[in-house]
């Protein structure tokens, strides 16, 4: 199948699903949920097909930043679908679907960076771990963001969009915590391998190539570490934990933005 057609299909399907999920979140009928889920699944399948064809065409997820980004989007979509099997997450799609769409669009818009620095096995492992860690943090942040919005609505006694398909706050909190718990050790390893790579390439020796994303990566790691400790020792949950999760991801996102800006320049 033509990769361009698959790309168009996934963007179209994710886009339409985003619109329908948003309609559901704003109080649209329950019928929207079925169509939204169908289109999201369609996008997910097209996305998988695109990644699969790419693998045969030497465009595997570790071959370039664009492919890695697309893969992160696909992991996010898969995570959302998997979580939806056991939880009422239809309204959560209003955030999950657009996030996936953004990842897919970024993967298309950004210039292909080609093979990674060094192209070594360690670089590949670093990309893999970073990708997986970022995907899990993105999912945790999406869930935390939904928690904040839903909590505010419940406090204001505005039940619009919360009647059908809305996940309970407890579920959102639990899933977000789970994503961080799994994502943190992965991201820790990503930072470690990244540090080894930087040292191996001698980037810090001259002091000229210290990049902002190194700092953001460390800030992000600290934010998630603090979140895990706060949850464990201080019993943080709910709104506080949600804000910290979103802040942690904002830092992680800056790592990506910094990276892409540098690539574009």
């Amino acid at each position: 199948m033509n990769p361009a057609a698959l790309a168009l299909a996934q963007i179209g399907a994710y886009g339409l699903a985003s619109g329908l999920y948003l309609g559901l979140f704003l109080g649209g009928g329950q019928r929207l949920a079925g169509w939204a889920c169908f289109l999201f699944l369609l996008g997910f399948a097209a996305h998988l097909g695109d990644i699969g064809i790419g693998c045969f065409d030497a465009r595997h997820p570790l071959s370039s930043t664009s492919e890695a980004l697309s893969f992160v989007g696909w992991l996010l979509a898969g995570g959302f679908l998997l979580a939806s099997l056991r939880n009422r997450l239809a309204t959560t799609g209003a955030f999950a679907a657009p996030t996936v769409l953004v990842f897919v669009l970024l993967a298309r818009v950004l210039p292909d960076s080609g093979a990674r620095a060094g192209g070594s096995g360690l670089a590949t492992i670093h990309i893999l771990l970073s990708t997986a860690g970022e995907a899990l943090f993105a999912l945790a942040a999406v869930l935390a963001l939904i928690y904040i919005v839903q909590e505010r609505r419940l406090k204001r006694k505005d039940f619009t969009g919360l009647r059908d398909g809305a996940a309970p706050l407890e579920t959102l909190d639990r899933l977000s915590r789970l994503c961080v718990l799994i994502g943190f050790p992965i991201f820790t390893l990503a930072i470690t391998t990244g540090a080894v790579l930087v040292a191996r390439l001698g980037l810090l020796r001259s002091g000229k190539d210290i990049r902002a994303e190194y700092l953001f990566a460390v800030v992000s790691w600290f934010a998630y570490g603090a979140l895990i400790i706060a949850r464990r020792s201080a019993g943080w949950q709910g709104r506080r934990a949600a804000w910290l999760t979103v802040s942690g991801f904002a830092a992680a996102l800056l790592v990506l933005v910094g990276y892409f800006l540098r690539r574009l320049s």
Partner: peptide, 8 residues
Amino acid sequence: DLVRRVFA
């Protein structure tokens, strides 16, 4: 039903 909006 409203309690279910908060707890699973």
